[in-house]
């Protein structure tokens, strides 16, 4: 257990070094490298099919790249199974919120506490005091997170009765329940209305400040990218096109070309 991987010691929260991923003969990611400093928000942008979500899945352990290196808080995780990543302080959301629609919002959020709760099947079936205490604490924390994201009123509602925009908020709470240091957000703005995007940006800004999170976000919505990211990397055809601030990316001729083709720049696609 190394505790010196905490922010401030100079170890990047996430290092991706020369990662290459192949599906059969197709090269999905081609020697991608970047670093994310602790407590910053890093954006992954690029046209459809650029490999953003694949890169994301490599970081979260759902895919295992053939070569390269991925370090979370300085720990090599390229071949770590995805289910061990939660304990390394990594949490993620999904492009299409994957909630259990028949369960209540509270139960959905509680799932996120899995890696922190103590005890196995025996102690849980006997309801040993420590499991009851831990469960009670987790419930209180889940309600507090819901309060913070403005969803406290929905705690006992079935998730299936909520709108898509609210699902994104519930999923964020679920991810935060595992006390992550590194949070991956996969297209958080997809399918949200303007007002919902603004509210989401606000929520992310507050939880980031309160919890000291490092965030990596995949997104098409340039407004959201500009609003929350410190740095962005633009991917195209599985390779890194440029890295810089969101403002730099939007005027970079290579980026404009990747999105719009070889013509005069117009408005960014929303």
């Amino acid at each position: 257990m190394t505790d010196d991987a905490s922010p401030g010691t100079g170890v990047p929260a996430l290092q991706v070094v020369d990662v290459t991923l192949r599906f059969g003969g197709i090269r999905v990611l081609d020697g991608v490298s970047f670093e994310v400093a602790p407590r910053t928000v890093f954006g992954l942008v690029g046209p459809n099919g650029a490999g953003k979500t694949s890169l994301f899945n490599c970081i979260s352990g759902h895919y295992h790249p053939g070569s390269g290196s991925i370090l979370v808080d300085g720990v090599e995780t390229r071949s770590t199974p995805a289910w061990r990543m939660a304990r390394l302080g990594l949490a993620r959301t999904f492009q299409h919120p994957a909630l259990q629609l028949g369960e209540t919002v509270l139960e959905n959020v509680l799932l996120g506490a899995h890696s922190l709760l103590p005890g196995g099947p025996v102690s849980w079936s006997l309801r040993l005091p420590r499991t009851r205490t831990a469960e009670r604490a987790a419930r209180a924390e889940a309600l507090e997170l819901l309060e913070r994201t403005g969803l406290r009123w929905a705690a006992d509602t079935r998730a299936g009765e909520l709108s898509h925009g609210l699902h994104k908020g519930v999923e964020l709470c679920r991810a935060l329940m595992s006390h992550p240091r590194l949070l991956l957000l996969d297209e958080p703005a997809a399918g949200l209305s303007h007002g919902e995007v603004d509210r989401f940006v606000e929520t992310v800004a507050t939880v980031r400040a309160d919890l000291g999170l490092t965030i990596v976000v995949v997104e098409h919505h340039m407004g959201l990218i500009s609003a929350i990211t410190d740095r962005v990397m633009v991917l195209d055809h599985g390779a890194k096109l440029m890295e810089g601030t969101a403002a730099q990316a939007q005027v970079d001729p290579r980026v404009v070309e990747a999105y719009l083709g070889r013509e005069v720049a117009e408005d960014e696609p929303a």
């Binding site: 993620r92 799932l111 996120g112 899995h114 005890g119």
Partner: peptide
Amino acid sequence: RVGRSFAIVRDNEAVALSM
């Protein structure tokens, strides 16, 4: 805790992994 892990393995293994 165990019941929730059963349910998510039934419903969505990708989410189970990330939890």
